[in-house]
């Protein structure tokens, strides 16, 4: 399994990028070249140099340090938002699958459809205008949109597993609803959920960047890739690199998580398993 994984190009590339982003985020907890919050107006809008690897912004803050802390921020949003989606979504999906065709199932799935009918970012903006801007509220908004995604995936996969004989065999053995889900269904759909989670993770990072860009996500002075982009807009003519670096950071990590998801999908698919 591990040998096969290491020969899978998109998995390997995705894993490396993901590890790099996670490593950077973790490192920022202990060390950054400069304190990303400290402004040195004298040093504003410096191009990349030995002192400031990626230059400085309009307040003289070190861009590299800000990107590092921004990575931590993006990861935090991703983890919590996807975590909300997985726990609530999978639970709802299981409840729906268990009572397939029942009123409860209908209610859950229609609620999911309802959420899907709205453009995610637009509704996130709506939610944030109600709850007020801020990173915690952004996480909640993004998390809410992850719930129906996981509910659907989990329900569909669970129904497929439930149609198989070993579920019937478990019932014949005397197991009932909850313990069948715990013992048989969850382990068999875990792979699919993990794949979906890595894709949703990429989307969550993108959404956080988008909301922060609009100024309703992560609030200053906490650095965020999206807000860095927004700030850089004003100085696009003078210092175009200011926009390019956070843009690359976003693109790079989204790509990484997507590749990881692709790779995992291939690796966890029982159909491609070695015979």
């Amino acid at each position: 399994m591990i040998g096969r994984a290491l020969r899978h190009p998109s998995f390997v590339v995705g894993l490396l990028i993901t590890l790099l982003v996670i490593g950077t985020g973790l490192l920022s907890l202990f060390w950054t070249p400069y304190d990303p919050g400290v402004m040195r107006i004298m040093n504003r809008l410096r191009p990349p140099s030995e002192l400031n690897w990626l230059g400085t912004d309009q307040f003289g803050r070190d861009v590299f340090s800000m990107l590092m802390v921004g990575a931590r921020n993006a990861l935090l949003v991703g983890i919590v938002a996807v975590g909300i989606g997985v726990t609530i979504g999978v639970t709802l999906g299981m409840i729906a699958a268990h009572g397939e065709g029942s009123l409860l199932d209908e209610a859950i799935m229609r609620a999911c459809d309802f959420t899907f009918a709205f453009p995610a970012v637009l509704t996130a903006i709506l939610i944030l205008t109600f709850l007020g801007p801020g990173v915690v509220n952004a996480i909640i908004a993004i998390g809410i949109f992850n719930i129906p995604v996981f509910a659907r995936v989990a329900r569909g996969a669970a129904l497929q597993v439930m149609a198989r004989d070993f579920i019937r065999a478990a019932r014949a053995a005397g197991r009932t609803g909850f313990s069948i889900i715990l013992r048989h269904i969850l382990p068999n759909i875990a792979g699919l959920i993990i794949v979906q989670a890595s894709v949703q993770f990429a989307l969550a990072i993108l959404a956080e960047a988008g909301l922060s860009y609009l100024g309703i996500g992560t609030q200053p002075p906490n650095p965020s890739w999206g807000r860095m982009l927004n700030d850089a807009q004003t100085f696009l003519a003078q210092a175009p690199l200011l926009a390019i670096f956070p843009g690359l950071a976003i693109a790079f990590s989204v790509l990484g998580f997507n590749l990881l998801g692709d790779g995992l999908r291939d690796l966890l698919d029982p159909k491609t398993k070695e015979r």
């Binding site: 198989r164 004989d165 070993f166 019937r168 065999a169 478990a170 014949a172 053995a173 013992r183 048989h184 382990p187 068999n188 029982p270």
Partner: peptide, 13 residues
Amino acid sequence: QMVFQDPYGSLDP
């Protein structure tokens, strides 16, 4: 107790 037809599907992989 019961034994099923498909030996590939009746045991949890």
